[in-house]
Amino acid sequence: MSSVAPPSTVAVAPATGAPLLRVAGLHKRFGEHAVLRGIELDVMAGDRIAILGASGSGKSTLLRCLNFMELPSAGVVELGGAPIGRAAPSKAEPGRRVYAEAELTRVRQRVGMVFQQFNLFPHMTALGNVMEGLRTVRGQREAEARERAHAELARVGLADKALAYPARLSGGQKQRVAIARALAMDPEVLLFDEPTSALDPELVGEVLRVIRSLAEEGRTMLLVTHEIGFAYHVASRVLFIAEGVIHEQGTPDEVLKHPSEPRTRAFIDRHREFDF
């Protein structure tokens, strides 16, 4: 009989030492306004990277470029060693690349994203939301998808809410369903775009607990967040973005406890509401 597939396995890097995700020379402009001005980043399998920065620093834009919700203006993103898109340099833009929808669609099947506003599909139940990717994108049969979806919902602690519609769920529950939805696709990399910023304070904890358990499994993830204490305990690496570049990066101890750049220090101090 069909057995439940174990909750998603951890991604394996293409070859020892080669990064799972690589970003080189990433630039992003909106009209005249340059948001990202040259990002270099290697993400190894198992990395948990927290991305911090002020509003407008470009941290969300960076994350959204990794699954091409935004198309880079210049620079290369490589997934599993393979560069995405095709080089199409012009005189005005030497680093320009063009991207085919079909390829981007395939990339997004390997890279999962959790949104600040949850973005659950309101016309489907929680179970339906989690099953949707499996049925429509992976083409799985109803029964298989359903079993897997149940398993993922159980993993985020919402087994009993499978048949509830999003309108009936609290913010924290909605976000956990959103995480289950992303996990069901067995992503190699998980992107979290300020996952708790839209939540009431008392609901933040349940979502952070789920993200922490994923981190402890060794999942590769990038997390844009304001929860500095959480970042300290969960991340393997911290990036501080300012003015479109990585201003400082290092271990949580290095960046959060003993930042070397004054700007980083100022940011940490402004957001200090806890003890590490």
Binding site: N67, M69, E101, A102, T105, R106, V107, R108, Q109, R110, G112, M113, F115, N119, L120, F121, E132, G133, T136, V137, A178, R181, A182, M185
Partner: peptide, 9 residues
């Protein structure tokens, strides 16, 4: 965005 992020065409 959520649907595209799942990899839907």
């Amino acid at each position: 965005e959520a649907a595209r992020a799942l990899g839907m065409a």
